[in-house]
Computed example of a mutant assay.
Amino acid sequence: MNSDSALSALAALAHPTRLNAFRLLVQHEPDGLSTGQLVNASGLSQSTFSTHLAVLAKAGLVTSEKRGRQINQRAEIDTLKGLMLFLAKDCCQGRPELCEPLLAELACC
């Protein structure tokens, strides 16, 4: 992941509605959720939520796939991994022991 991609992903996640939707999709991997389920969970109108979904998709955080008559949304886990690695590599400054507490906390979940 490069700086532009990281900035795009971080900007997309910097809104409560989009962050909540993305977290919900991550929790429902690998199946994802229908757009209707996401709209219901957000409490927003379909058109307002669609705008937020488009921002996530443009940042490469969410993909859509048609399943019958519904459109299913899925989190792009590879983009999430790339963002996390991009941030962790810089924060550790070549010293893995700085990131060990973070990795240990992730392993426990």
Rank of each mutant, 00 (worst) to 15 (best):
E65P: 07
Q93V: 04
K58C: 00
L98H: 02
F22N: 11
A41G: 04
A11G: 10
R23H: 12
L13G: 01
C99Y: 01
S50D: 05
Q46Y: 06
L7G: 15
N72H: 12
N20Q: 15
T79W: 03
G43M: 09
M1D: 06
R74T: 09
S47Y: 03
C91V: 10
I71V: 15
Q37G: 09
I77R: 14
N2T: 10
G43W: 04
L80I: 10
A11Y: 13
N2P: 10
L38E: 01
P96C: 03
A54L: 01
L7W: 13
S3G: 11
E29N: 13
S5L: 13
A75N: 02
L61M: 05
Q70V: 11
F49A: 09
E100D: 05
L7T: 02
L44E: 05
L56S: 00
A107P: 03
L24W: 11
A107T: 08
D4N: 11
R23Q: 15
L19M: 12
K89D: 13
G32L: 04
L13M: 09
L44N: 00
R95Y: 08
G68H: 11
L83M: 03
P101L: 00
L25I: 02
Q27L: 14
E100T: 07
R74K: 15
K89Q: 15
R74Y: 10
T63K: 02
L87S: 03
E76F: 03
A11R: 08
L56D: 00
P96F: 04
V55D: 10
G36L: 12
N40K: 15
G68C: 05
E65S: 12
A6M: 05
G94Y: 10
A41F: 07
G94I: 02
L98M: 11
L25S: 11
E105F: 02
H28Q: 12
E105C: 04
A88C: 08
T17R: 01
A107F: 12
T79N: 06
Q37E: 14
Q37A: 09
A59K: 07
K66I: 15
L53G: 02
F49H: 14
C108H: 12
L13S: 00
L61I: 00
S64H: 05
V55P: 02
L10E: 09
L7I: 08
L19H: 12
K81C: 08
L19R: 14
L80R: 07
E105K: 04
L24N: 06
L83W: 09
T79R: 13
N40A: 15
G94E: 05
F49I: 01
S5V: 04
S5K: 04
L83H: 07
Q93G: 09
V26T: 14
S47M: 07
A41K: 10
T51E: 04
E65L: 11
R18D: 02
N72Q: 12
S5H: 11
G43D: 03
V62G: 05
C108M: 06
K58M: 09
L13R: 07
I77A: 08
Q93A: 07
L38A: 03
A9I: 01
A6C: 12
L106F: 11
R67T: 15
A14S: 14
S64M: 13
P30D: 00
G43S: 05
V55W: 04
G60H: 02
F86G: 04
Q70C: 15
S5M: 11
P16W: 14
G36Y: 08
Q46W: 03
D90Y: 06
Q37Y: 00
K89N: 15
D90R: 13
S50G: 03
R67Q: 15
S47L: 07
S47I: 05
S64A: 10
S47A: 10
M84I: 12
